[in-house]
Measured scan of single mutants.
Amino acid sequence: MQGVVKVNSALNMRSGPGSNYGVIGTLRNNDKVEIIKEVDGAYEIRFNGKVGYASKSYITIVN
């Protein structure tokens, strides 16, 4: 499943599905991501070869 990031500035990509996990990357508006699955209000995603988590509130599914 594919998604597009929709933010005003940037969205943190984290090592786990919550803000208490470390930041492993930054997503920008209109970045395209692969959605692997939904976990606790976040999506597990793949972006630029990395797998991490981002809030589903800022990712629009575009299948």
Rank of each mutant, 00 (worst) to 15 (best):
K50W: 06
G41F: 08
T26C: 13
V33F: 03
R14H: 14
Y21R: 05
G3K: 01
M13E: 01
V7Q: 03
K32E: 10
Y21K: 05
K37Y: 05
N63Y: 11
S55F: 08
V5E: 01
V5S: 02
I35V: 11
G16W: 03
D40S: 10
S9N: 12
N30A: 07
G16R: 06
G22S: 14
K56M: 10
I45C: 03
D31E: 06
V23K: 07
V33I: 06
L11H: 05
N12H: 15
N20G: 12
K37S: 14
V7M: 04
E38Q: 07
G18K: 06
Y43H: 00
A10Y: 15
G52I: 03
S57V: 13
V23W: 05
V33R: 00
N30F: 08
S57T: 12
G18P: 03
I59S: 00
S19C: 15
I45W: 00
T60G: 06
R14G: 03
A54E: 01
S55A: 12
V5T: 02
N20W: 13
A10W: 15
S19A: 13
E38A: 08
F47G: 02
Q2I: 15
K6P: 01
S9K: 14
P17Q: 04
D31L: 04
V51Q: 09
V5F: 01
I35H: 01
S57C: 15
N29H: 09
V62A: 08
G16E: 05
I36N: 03
I59A: 00
A10I: 15
Q2A: 10
T60I: 15
I35E: 00
I59E: 00
A54N: 01
I36Y: 05
V33D: 00
S55W: 11
D40P: 08
I36W: 04
E38N: 03
V39C: 10
D31N: 05
R14S: 05
G16K: 06
I45Y: 01
L27K: 00
E34Q: 10
R28Q: 12
N63C: 14
I24L: 06
T60Q: 14
V5M: 03
L11N: 02
A42W: 15
V4T: 07
V62R: 05
V33P: 01
V33G: 00
I61S: 04
K32D: 04
G41K: 06
T26S: 08
T26R: 11
Q2M: 15
N8K: 15
G3Y: 03
V23L: 06
G49F: 04
I36P: 00
I24F: 02
V33K: 00
S15R: 08
L27T: 01
G18Y: 05
A54C: 13
T60E: 14
I45Q: 00
S15P: 03
K32G: 04
I24N: 04
R46F: 11
E34K: 06
Q2S: 11
K6Q: 10
G41Y: 08
M1A: 10
A10K: 14
Y53E: 01
T60P: 02
I61W: 04
E38P: 03
G49H: 06
L27V: 03
N8W: 09
T60K: 13
G16H: 08
R28F: 12
L27E: 00
L11Y: 04
Y43N: 00
S9Q: 12
N48S: 07
R46H: 08
D31M: 05
S9P: 05
P17M: 06
